[in-house]
């Protein structure tokens, strides 16, 4: 098959890639934001220190982050089968993607929230803010621009993982690259896939930067 004949397949898998990436990012953020916030709040110099919770969650996050993604994907196949019913295809890939990305995003959120000036937190406590009010009205809004930049980085990382999943039965552009570009030795296809992935990364990064710049009021 030449590239022109491949176009419908490419378009279909491009959508699969976008679907996997966005769905996984969204799910990972839904889990990762609370996790990151708990890590900050329960830290020894946080607003509600809890060494036990902090150490257990921190340990889980570190453990998950140290397993290479490909190995994780294979290792969680039973879980994937249980949740999705199959371990093959785009939707199935979302499961290992979320498991891999959540701890990563929790750390990104943690680092963004830790950038919030200690003095501002102190000032809100002096005004009688409760820990929950500090989280909702101070930490999250003040960390927002930094978290948006983090989200762009996280999304591109998840995109990279999703392409990797193509090696072990996932769909998307990665699957085309491996099935046609590598197994059938079609260098042209491989190059097109690489260009497409690079383009998507650039677009996501640029959108992230623009939104962060627009929302950050620290810039005059």
């Amino acid at each position: 098959m030449n590239i022109v004949e491949m176009i419908p397949i490419i378009v279909k898998e491009l959508w699969a890639t976008i679907y996997m990436t966005l769905a996984s990012t969204l799910a990972s953020y839904i889990l990762g934001i609370p996790l990151g916030l708990i890590l900050v709040v329960t830290d020894s110099d946080g607003i509600h220190p809890n060494p036990a919770v902090n150490r257990v969650l921190g340990g889980i996050v570190n453990a998950l982050r140290s397993v290479p993604f490909i190995i994780l994907t294979v290792a969680v196949i039973p879980v994937t089968r249980f949740i999705v019913g199959t371990s093959i295809g785009s939707t199935a890939t979302i499961v290992p993607l979320v498991i891999a990305a959540t701890p990563y995003i929790a750390r990104m959120v943690e680092s963004s929230v830790k950038e919030v000036d200690r003095g501002v937190i102190e000032a809100s406590l002096s005004m009688g803010a409760s820990p929950l009010q500090v989280v909702l009205k101070v930490l999250l809004p003040e960390a927002k621009p930094s978290m948006i930049i983090g989200a762009a980085i996280a999304t591109t990382t998840i995109l990279g993982y999703s392409a990797m999943a193509g090696f072990v039965g996932g769909g998307g552009l990665g699957a085309i690259a491996i099935n046609y570009g590598y197994y059938r030795n079609q260098t042209g296809i491989m190059i097109v896939m690489i260009i497409l992935l690079v383009l998507i990364v650039q677009i996501i990064q640029e959108i992230g930067n623009i939104i962060a710049r627009k929302t950050d009021k620290r810039i005059r």
Binding site: D117, E142, K144, K217
Partner: peptide
């Protein structure tokens, strides 16, 4: 250091 909320 004033400690205002920078995003408000």
């Amino acid at each position: 250091s004033f400690n205002l909320l920078m995003q408000r």
